[in-house]
Structures are given as C-alpha cells and as structure tokens.
Design a protein around this nucleic acid. Structure first.
Length: 417
RNA sequence: GGAGGAGUGCCCGAGUGGUUAAAGGGGACGGACUGUAAAUCCGUUGGCUUUGCCUACGUUGGUUCGAAUCCAACCUCCUCCA
C-alpha cells in the first residue's frame, strides 16, 4: 500500500476508502500543496439517498475535515436523461418537478453533517442541470465532441464487453459518459475542481472526465474510486427488514436505521466502523478485536455513531434506549415506531390481520395470515395463533398502546387517537 | 426497409391443449439454533369476505367442453442483413 503524506489521502487509505486512483503520488502531492476542490455526483432518482451513497458522503466529510473543499453535485440534468448503465430496461422518465423534489430531499441528508456556505472550505452544492439543459447539440459536438476519441471510448471495458457479446448498446448510453465528463470540465472551470470521486462502477465515466479536462482546460485532473461495499457474506449492502436503508428520517425511522447497523455481520464490524464513523482508528482497532458476544458492544457503538451522524445525538440515544428495552429487557419501549389509529376504530374492534397490514408489517391479509400460521405474530408479546383475533380497547397496555410484533425484530406500536 | 427470435410470478427460468396459482433456482420473509451476527436446518412466498371465490403467463380478440400452451392483429425488446 502506498504511504501517503497528506492528511486526506492518509485518512482515506487507512480507513479503506480507496479502490482505484489515477495517480496516487501526484494526488497526494496536490493535497499537500493546496486546498483541493473535489466533487462527487449524486443521482436524483429518489427522494432520499440510501446507505449505498454513504461511503461517498463520508469522503466529502473527510475532505472538509482535512481542510479541503468538497462539491456535492446533484444530477439534476443527467437524471433527466437517466443513467442506463447496469440497467436492462430504461428507467421511467422523471418530470422536472419530481427531480426538484428529490433534490430537496437529498440536500437534507447532506446538511446533517456537512457545512454548506460560501466560505472557502464550505461544501458547494451544484447541479448539473445548470449547464447541461442549455447545451446546444452542435455547439456541444464542436467543443467537446472533437476532443473525444471514439477509439478510446471503444476501449472501455463496459463497451468492449457489450460489443464482444454482440449486445445492444444504444447511442444514449454511449453518450452518458460524455455528459458526465463534461460535468467535470464545467466544475473545473467554475470552481477549480481537480478531483472526481465515486463508486468503483463510475471509474470509466470519471476517467473520461479526466481525459477531457486535460484537453480542454489544460489541467491535471484526478480520479479516485471507492470499493463496492458488500457484506462479508457477499450480499449487496443496504437491505433491512423495512426495505432499502434510506438516509432521510421520513423514509426510514432513526430506530430502524440504528437497527440496520446493529445487525451488522461480525466480519464487517471493523471495516464498517472505519468507513461509516468518525471514530479514531486506535479506538476502532480496539473494538474490532472483541470476540464472541462482546463484539455486540462494538456493533452498538457502530449503530450509535452512524445514527448520530445521520439523525443527531438525541435520535441516536433514543434508538439505542428503545432497542435496549425491547431486546434486553423485553419491555415495551415507548419510542418504538408507532402508527396512529382512530380511537373509534379500536372501540369497534380491529381485525388482527387488518391491523398488521395497516401497520405496514404485512403486505396483505394473506401475508399476515401466513405469518400467523408461521408463528411470527405477537400482540403485546403474547403469541397469537388465531387469525380471527380482534383487537379492542381491552388490548391496550398500561401505556395506552398496543404492541404488534412480527418476528423477533420488527415491532410497531398502535396508538389510539 | 428486409429476415429471424423473444416477452411467464420480486428476479432468473421450466412449461407447447386439461388435477398449473404454474417445476427448479435465487432473493425475501418467518421458525429452530445462537449473541438482535454468520453458517446450517425447516417452513412460507398472487389477492379476497378462504373448506370457496377472484385475478394472473406482453395487449386485444378468436378457436375449443377446456388455452400460459393453438390462430390473428397489435405493442415492446433483441439479433442479423441493408
């Protein structure tokens, strides 16, 4: 492994962020000699980013932390086209309003742990819609197209693969890398940006930008990618009981976020602590040495730290406390995720199956029915085997709620209103 | 523009007239075992007012007692030729 001298590269390298880099030594020198501006692009296809993007966000954080200037680039323009890579069918086209709404949601995530503003080290939020939407085709071809070598584009691994297999490659897909390359140039001109970072799947696209920038701006640009983060057992990261692990609290409750980290596989604890928390490395080294049941303590710390970063210290403490009560004492914790139901409905009696569907624990009555048969359903910690069971006001606990559980980990409180 | 091929459940994929809600695998969920881990084993995996009914094999129509399976038109995708 290369020994880096700059704080930023050293940190990234020690924490396991670096997968590929176009010129590690030169980049290291650059970080030593000046305040570097670097960017990472984010798609605006959903209202929130999910944990998959967290690695990238953490890199922005470390840039800021080590005294450099990160740019978070919203793909307001490229999302309108839709990145076809890795897709076997075209994404449905999003409207301008949808994209704007998504952008706002995503921005909220960043505000949690990056400082935005006008200062020299504040994070810049840019949007490629600002320059891409106004492009004129012929102008673009004359300015950019003449510098782009089709020969080189054909050399790209992703392209070669498609050609060799005689698989269809649309012109749109072929162009996507140009737009992304052009982003890099535009950011170099506007902000003096010299580095683009991203996931390893972006390596080719990023390199296109490096090449193009060198030609157009006569500046040495750099590329750096992170490894694809999978769990130790090989699964793609980011699934939980509740579905995708979204970063926005509206899409995934802090408690569920905490649980996601708490359920990390043993073999991943050290690696995740390095990537997803800001804890010092010696502390992490100590934690990852823990064995057996003791490792659970490290997982809790991971969950606490990760949740704190995303949702704040208060939410993290609550989540931890809720989990402790729920799992270690088996008691009813008041801050479990809850849904409200009209008091009148409860007095009339709510069918068990309907309640589970309403709480979002089951997808349909049939699903709920199957779970009852499978012994997964408990009400107020009492196993229920009768699918015709009706919930009434009598089921309210002393705390005035009804606790619905599905399996050992999923719990929802029904709160009459 | 011409010729050929394909469209099946969350995904992959079998099925070429009848016990097919549709083999098999993956994924997901649940149970057992554990440490809220992994691995392993077991179960579930269209909907509903569930001993029954409804909806489903690209879309629409047709043949038939009966169609995912046969026919026609259309839509979408792919490959090759130009």
């Amino acid at each position: 492994m290369t020994v880096y001298k700059s704080d930023f590269m050293k940190t990234l390298s020690e924490r396991g962020f670096i997968y590929q880099c176009s010129d590690p030594e030169a980049l290291d020198r650059l970080f030593l000699s000046e305040t570097v501006t670097a960017y990472i692009g984010f798609d605006c296809t959903a209202k929130s980013l999910h944990v998959g993007s967290l690695v990238q966000i953490m890199m922005l954080h470390w840039m800021q932390e080590t005294g450099h200037r990160p740019i978070a680039l919203m793909g307001g323009g490229t999302t309108r086209v839709g990145d076809p890579s890795g897709k076997d069918e075209a994404r449905k086209l999003l409207t301008g309003e949808e994209i704007e709404a998504n952008k706002a949601g995503i921005r909220k995530v960043f505000e949690g742990f990056l400082n935005f503003g006008e200062g020299p080290k504040d994070v810049v939020m840019a949007d490629n819609a600002d320059w891409l939407l106004g492009l004129q085709y012929v102008d673009f071809l004359r300015e950019i197209g003449r510098h782009v070598s089709v020969n080189q584009m054909l050399q790209r691994e992703s392209v070669k693969l498609r050609l060799e297999r005689e698989q269809h490659l649309s012109f749109l897909e072929f162009n996507y890398m140009l737009l992304q390359a052009y982003d890099f140039v535009e950011l170099t001109r506007r902000y003096g940006c010299k580095l683009q970072m991203g996931g390893s799947d972006q390596w080719g696209n990023i390199l296109s930008g490096v090449d193009l920038g060198r030609r157009l701006t006569d500046t040495e640009l750099f590329a750096l990618t992170t490894p694809l983060i999978t769990t130790a057992s090989g699964a793609k990261m980011g699934k939980t009981a509740a579905g995708a692990v979204w970063l926005n609290a509206e899409m995934l409750a802090p408690y569920d976020y905490w649980q996601f980290w708490r359920n990390t596989e043993n073999a991943d604890v050290g690696r995740f602590l390095k990537l997803f928390t800001k804890l010092p490395l010696d502390e992490i080294a100590r934690l990852e040495k823990l064995e057996g049941a003791e490792l659970n303590e490290a997982k809790k710390i991971l969950a606490n730290e990760a949740t704190k970063q995303m949702h704040g210290a208060k939410a993290a403490e609550e989540a931890a406390e809720t989990a402790r009560k729920t799992f270690e004492e088996g008691a009813l914790a008041h801050s479990l995720p809850s849904i409200e139901i009209p008091r009148a409905d409860l007095e009339a009696g709510i069918g068990l199956l309907a309640a589970y569907v309403q709480a979002g624990l089951c997808g349909s009555n049939g699903d709920a029915r199957r779970n009852v048969k499978g012994g997964a359903v408990r009400v107020n910690d009492q196993a229920v085997s009768d699918e015709r069971r009706v919930l009434t006001a009598d089921d309210l606990t002393d705390d005035g709620v009804i606790k619905l559980s599905l399996g050992k980990k999923k719990h929802i409180l029904l709160r009459p209103m």
